[in-house]
Write a protein that binds this DNA or RNA. Structure first.
Length: 213
DNA sequence: GGGAGGATGCCCT
DNA sequence: GGGCATCCTCCCG
């Protein structure tokens, strides 16, 4: 049982950088969610960068609103949103403060507390599917809007924190277009994932929804 | 394994 | 009232 740097939290400075630096650097890091049920740990395998008010794909593109205000706050905090009437997704706010940039956590591998994750993700056919997709990741970790604005670098005793995890060789990082982003933001290669990892979610290009009667 | 379509509620215009 | 940084089921191969 080695107590090395792997188990120490990331610092505020880690997040106080450009989102395009932070996003790939989050791969391989450990996200810890602590509830009364027990802690669940996930090793991040897929993320997407959202560059705030200059990014047509970002929730902050049209400025500050009641929903997205957490993105405009200091880096190292959570931005949790509710979507499609059913799902939550988790972002980590990056610097500098006021730019409203953030990283969407899209997928990961459950490394501890899998029994709690399985209880929340009854439709998962195997453990690779527990956190394969942003809403699945949030569900597996029991994340909802009560965590919006939560400090994730305050320390491992909080409800949500990010640890150093295992360093990832740079040549294992791949990048490509973001999933589900259309319009002017569609072609930016701001999705990052670990090459060949079985927990990375399938890529789906943005498709406009057809009208339903 | 993959494409189509429905679910479902909140936010913003 | 339209659209959503999605997921699940059904159906086809």
């Amino acid at each position: 049982m080695t107590e090395g740097i792997e188990r120490t939290p990331l610092t505020r400075d880690f997040f106080d950088r450009s989102v395009l630096e932070v996003a790939p650097d989050l791969l391989g890091r450990t996200l810890v969610r602590t509830t009364e049920a027990g802690p669940v740990e996930v090793r991040l395998t897929e993320v997407e960068a959202y560059a705030g008010e200059i990014d047509p794909g970002s929730h902050a593109f049209r400025g500050r609103t009641q929903r997205n205000h957490a993105m405009f706050g200091p880096p190292g905090h959570a931005y949790v949103y509710f979507t499609y009437g059913m799902w939550h997704c988790l972002n980590l706010v990056c610097g500098p403060e006021g730019r409203a940039s953030g990283v969407l956590l899209r997928a990961g591998a459950i490394e501890a507390g899998a029994e709690w994750a399985r209880e929340r993700r009854l439709t998962a056919r195997n453990d690779n599917e527990l956190a394969k997709g942003p809403a699945r990741l949030a569900t597996a970790l029991g994340i909802d809007r009560t965590l919006n604005g939560e400090d994730v670098v305050a320390g491992p005793s909080g409800p949500l924190s990010v640890l150093h995890g295992t360093p990832l060789p740079r040549d294992q990082v791949r990048s490509g277009p973001r999933t589900g982003v259309g319009g002017d933001g569609a072609h930016q290669p701001w999705r990052f994932w670990i090459d060949g990892d079985p927990t990375v979610s399938p890529y789906r290009a943005h498709a406009p929804r057809r009208r339903t009667t």
